[in-house]
């Protein structure tokens, strides 16, 4: 068990340093990259918070959809293979449900304010 602060707390401190202290002193390209860096840290903080749960749910759905065991990378490669060879049809109901839920979870980590997520008809209310 690591001591306090948690990884999330450290990253949040780094993000706040960039936003509140570094960025006001920067201009042009460097200021732009600092903004990108702060956003990148926010992605990691969300991934630390939501990633494990999302990955477990994705793996369970994949195992059910493909009727086999494996890690996430193996299962996703197998899913891609079956789609390419038409062993799995793209209008399969289990597939569309899996991809919808997986993608909602991914974008919620990568870009929670993205318009395609905010206005998705699949978004739970």
């Amino acid at each position: 068990m690591m001591d306090q602060p948690s990884a999330t707390e450290i990253l949040t401190a780094v993000r706040e340093f960039i936003e509140k202290h570094a960025m006001p002193e920067l201009t042009g390209r460097t200021a732009f990259h600092a903004r990108v860096a702060a956003n990148a840290i926010a992605i990691i903080v969300r991934e630390l918070d939501q990633g494990d749960r999302a990955n477990v749910a994705e793996q369970l759905r994949l195992e059910q959809l493909l009727q086999r065991k494996g890690n996430l990378a193996e299962l996703n490669r197998e899913l891609c293979r079956r789609l390419r060879t038409n062993e799995l049809a793209i209008d399969d109901a289990g597939l569309s449900r899996h991809l919808t839920l997986t993608t909602l979870a991914k974008v919620a980590i990568d870009q929670p304010n993205y318009s395609g997520l905010l206005h998705s008809p699949h978004r739970p209310d």
Binding site: S96, T100, V107, Y114, P121, H122
Partner: peptide, 17 residues
């Protein structure tokens, strides 16, 4: 992933069961 949600919205327009 932003394009993935856009593709899901385009290709699976109805909400899943």
């Amino acid at each position: 992933s932003e394009t993935e949600i856009d593709l899901v919205n385009l290709l699976y327009p109805k909400a899943p069961a």
